[in-house]
Amino acid sequence: MDDLIVKTVTKLIIPFIQLYGIFVILHGHLSPGGGFAGGAIIGASFILLTLAFGIEYTKSILSAKVTERVEIGGVIWYIFIGLIGIAISGVFLGNRVAGFPMGTFGSVISGGMISLITIGIGLKVASTMISLFHHIIEED
């Protein structure tokens, strides 16, 4: 697709989409949304980039190797946080019993490790969505 209007609008709108996705991920424990919804929004922004500029351009920014690594890293991060809970308190994903700081109610830094877990889920969902789309659209 070689269209000036589509390319210009994509360049303008992608930072706002990604900022909104990061906002949804970081406020996962306070407002609607969370890791899955925010990760889906970030993944959709990269799909828009692929549709406007072609798969080669997106792969020069975010190669298949990087998306694979991020995908695996998100899962390992989740399990790692869960194992911290086991090591300290004996409960998988133990939050308050494992001594994570609770913070003040209603602020962004609160809820112990829930926001850390949400970041891992967001990375995993976003990279899965990107690599899934690239695998489908790729010419063989």
Binding site: V24, P32, G33, G34, F36, A37, A40, I41, G43, A44, I47, L51, M129, L132, F133, I136
Partner: peptide, 17 residues
């Protein structure tokens, strides 16, 4: 939150896929 996910996945990504 389900509405947000449905709008992003159902109306956006599924259509493109």
């Amino acid at each position: 939150d389900i509405a947000m996910t449905e709008a992003a996945i159902g109306a956006g990504v599924t259509t493109v896929l």
